[in-house]
Design a protein around this nucleic acid. Structure first.
Lengths: 343, 343
DNA sequence: CTGAAAGCGCTTACAG
DNA sequence: CTGAAAGCGCTTACAG
């Protein structure tokens, strides 16, 4: 409680002090730091010893002025969706033994525009950016990619050469849901989608749903409801559908998060699940396993998606110029919310 | 698709270009940027015009070399707990009209030590740091606070002069839970707490639970089970308790997230809620409202906590040296998981 | 293999 | 009120 403010920054060890302590030049220390070529073993060990002794940690901003900041930016549309926790686990595990540190930012949840967040990350010298479930248009993504290495998760742009994408096969995922519901005797299947003009994963899922319905002669039962992501809007849309004249036998929800809300609405309306209404989600998040939900869902390996995105963005940083597009094959994980023992 | 890499950074407008365009000095532009004193209206408007015309955005790292980066760091122990989304909403809304940008990092979820994350944020020149549910010891927090303005959420250190704290009254919250359960006819009340040697919010909640039980002559019924935060450990602990000889009538869980897991286990065991087991959580997160959970919980206004923490950390950055400790009064939000119509 | 010097884009005293 | 110069802590060519 004695010496308060003065040491606020002065206690920070700089590369110069390390150099002096080791009896070498600043440039030499920098080389050791970056694990660059052309450093003798003896110089390296001398410098390493001084670094440890002085407890030296380089200042990322200073490094960023000329080189890298060793920071990766992760853009999330909304921290509430539990699926993002799975992705994050994968990203973090990929970064574990590297020098890179992840910094996250959320956009929609508080009205902060996604574009403003990405700009903030560029201004903060992120070495690379991973965007989850972006709502940006292609030209905008291209312009971001020209400034920083970019990987998107949950956005289909497999023809893009400017950035990498990581996805599951959303069209297939939706088809598998319909197949699963049909196999369990449900034929009047509706889909609860997201009101979005730019989401390519949603258009793929809708397409898969449509096609599979049509191929099974159920084209007349196709019913896609689109609602914004807020709980209130979802609740209103679900209520309207389930109380209305065209109440379906089964409802395919675009993400677990929303499906849980539908389970809640259905329960309040006194509907039994799955007898009166089967429900299927997407993402197979941890909440699906809870007995009170028992939610059938599509597993797209969020952790794997996260892992791959980190790998790809680091490769880009290291110079890869050709785009890579990673795709996971999804699978249905059946639980009580959609299993009808007897048709 | 023509001019690819070369412009990768060259397209960035610098303060020098703005100065040239406006016909003033670089220092003058800097002053306008920082909204510093001693700039004439005419110079300011000239500079502003050039900034807009050239679409100038300052580089945070460069600013950080001498001044601030206008970046705040938020340390989360785990992105999975939905309570953090509420806090985040508050932080973001407080930052909305400021120059500050929030960057989050998670620690425990992937084995990354909290300490390493905080160091990474210091190395990246965060102007201030907000730590949620920290597990660091007091001396370590003091040492962080000496390097950067620090505010903790969910950590009791009301006597600290080195950093600010934002909390709800956890002891009271626990007392209210016991009172509520007693009023609903439950007397054999157990508590599911977190296995942690450093969490002060847990020790406060445990203390409140103990005291309220004792003051109601139920000292003999006190039963605190402590489990790590992983779903598996919670499941094992819950199973053991609910299948064992000392199965309680009611279980107070330290956070909603864990209570939802207990609802799942109880449901699997065929227990009716609340007839066979009443359950109460803490944090009053959105999942409590879902009909399949109907979870009674303690509201501690996560959004308000977040808002205050952002306010306090910015005040610290601006020079406030005396500590402030903000405390919210919690309240019980009763739902079906704990309401017994007839005793 | 090693080092001296310039420079990244800002802010900060200090003159005028 | 305005500006020239130094400097923040690194990396990057470029010599030696």
């Amino acid at each position: 409680m004695a010496e308060a403010k003065p040491e606020k920054k002065n206690d920070r060890v700089t590369i110069r002090e390390v150099a002096e302590d080791a009896g070498v030049s600043v440039a030499a220390v920098s080389k050791v730091l970056r694990e660059a070529y052309g450093v003798s073993e003896s110089l390296r060990s001398k410098v390493r010893a001084s670094m440890n002794k002085l407890n030296y940690r380089p200042l990322a901003s200073a490094r960023g002025m000329r080189g890298q900041t060793y920071t990766l930016g992760l853009v999330l549309p909304d921290i509430r969706n539990p699926f993002f926790a799975d992705i994050l686990a994968g990203v973090n595990s990929a970064l574990e033994r590297t020098q890179y540190q992840l910094m996250m930012g959320t956009s929609h949840s508080q009205g902060l525009a996604e574009e403003a967040l990405v700009e903030a990350m560029i201004d903060r010298q992120m070495d690379g950016i991973i965007m989850i479930g972006t709502t940006e248009y292609m030209d905008r993504l291209g312009s971001i990619a020209k400034q920083k290495p970019l990987v998107t998760i949950g956005h289909h742009a497999e023809t893009s050469q400017l950035f990498d994408t990581v996805n599951n096969d959303d069209q297939l995922g939706a088809r598998l849901v319909v197949k699963h519901l049909l196999a369990n005797g449900f034929r009047n299947i509706a889909m609860l989608s997201l009101a979005s003009t730019t989401s390519t994963i949603l258009s793929e899922r809708e397409l898969g749903y449509r096609r599979e319905m049509i191929e099974n002669g159920l084209g007349e039962n196709i019913n896609i409801i689109r609602a914004p992501q807020t709980l209130r809007e979802v609740q209103i849309a679900a209520r309207r559908l389930l109380e209305g004249p065209s109440k379906p036998e089964a409802l395919f929800c675009w993400t677990d998060f929303i499906a849980l809300e539908v389970i809640s609405v259905a329960t309040e309306l006194g509907l039994r699940i799955p007898q009166d209404l089967a429900i299927v989600g997407y993402d197979n998040t941890m909440y699906c396993d809870f007995a009170q939900n028992g939610l059938t869902s599509v597993d797209q390996s969020g952790e794997l998606l996260g892992l791959q995105s980190a790998r790809l963005v680091i490769e880009r940083i290291r110079g890869r110029a050709e785009a890579e597009h990673f795709v996971v094959t999804p699978r249905v994980v059946a639980r009580s919310s959609s299993k009808r023992s007897a048709v």
